[in-house]
């Protein structure tokens, strides 16, 4: 005769065993293990050291063609930026002036970031539509226009982490704030010496959207 009690005991014991094995590693047993191909499809970031850069290559000569096709309508033929779309080229020696121009050449500290951003977000409205080679080509063209590499330099996954950007050392770490005078929660309350002259009015600048002018 079939022993139901024994079978049930076996099932319960094995369930308990399985559970206890998993519970020791995963507290809630929620979610699923990601497959390698699932991760590969979404893990598109490229780090400053080149980690994550996909296999591919491109130079500025080929880059000029694809740039003209998919970038120039907003960023201009020479990366000068049309209307309020960002400038991509130039701005060297402008960062310490009254009108700093932050471009890939004058400001961006890593070439990897240019690749990462173009591949993930450009062209605007057609994210991740460029091939890896096309992306390398466009990055090479921007680096060339910013006089960082030669026109025939072959940019690849192996050397993108080694490109030396002009403003690589232009950034300060760590955050020094609070950077204003520490007055330990006890600011002046009476007859404080403060500037009281009105030196500017937003009304006079006259750039506030119409509806809200009072």
């Amino acid at each position: 005769m079939f022993d139901w009690v024994k079978l049930l005991t076996l099932i319960i014991t094995s369930l308990f065993f399985m559970n206890s094995v998993f519970a020791s590693e995963r507290k809630f047993n929620l979610g699923k293990i990601a497959l390698k191909k699932e991760v590969a499809g979404w893990d598109i970031d490229v780090r400053p050291d080149g980690k994550g850069a996909p296999i591919g290559k491109g130079n500025a000569i080929k880059g000029e063609e694809i740039y003209a096709e998919v970038c120039a309508s907003c960023h201009g033929d020479f990366g000068e930026g049309i209307d309020r779309w960002p400038e991509l080229v130039g701005g060297h020696d402008s960062l310490d002036t009254h009108d700093p121009i932050k471009t890939t050449g004058s400001y961006w500290p890593y070439a990897s970031t240019i690749y990462d951003y173009i591949y993930r977000a450009m062209p605007f409205g057609a994210a991740q539509s460029l091939s890896h080679d096309e992306t390398y080509q466009i990055v090479a063209y921007l680096l060339y226009m910013n006089e960082i590499i030669e026109e025939d330099f072959e940019l690849t996954e192996k050397n993108i982490g080694k490109i030396k950007m002009p403003n690589r050392n232009g950034f300060l770490l760590p955050d020094p704030r609070p950077d204003v005078k520490i007055i330990n929660g006890k600011p002046c309350m009476k007859n404080c010496t403060v500037p009281l002259k009105i030196i500017g009015k937003a009304r006079d600048i006259d750039v506030t959207p119409e509806e809200n002018k009072s």
């Binding site: 890593y110 970031t113 990462d116």
Partner: peptide, 10 residues
């Protein structure tokens, strides 16, 4: 290490 994305650099 940090990823130095477009937002946190440029």
């Amino acid at each position: 290490m940090p990823y130095m994305t477009r937002e946190e650099t440029s």
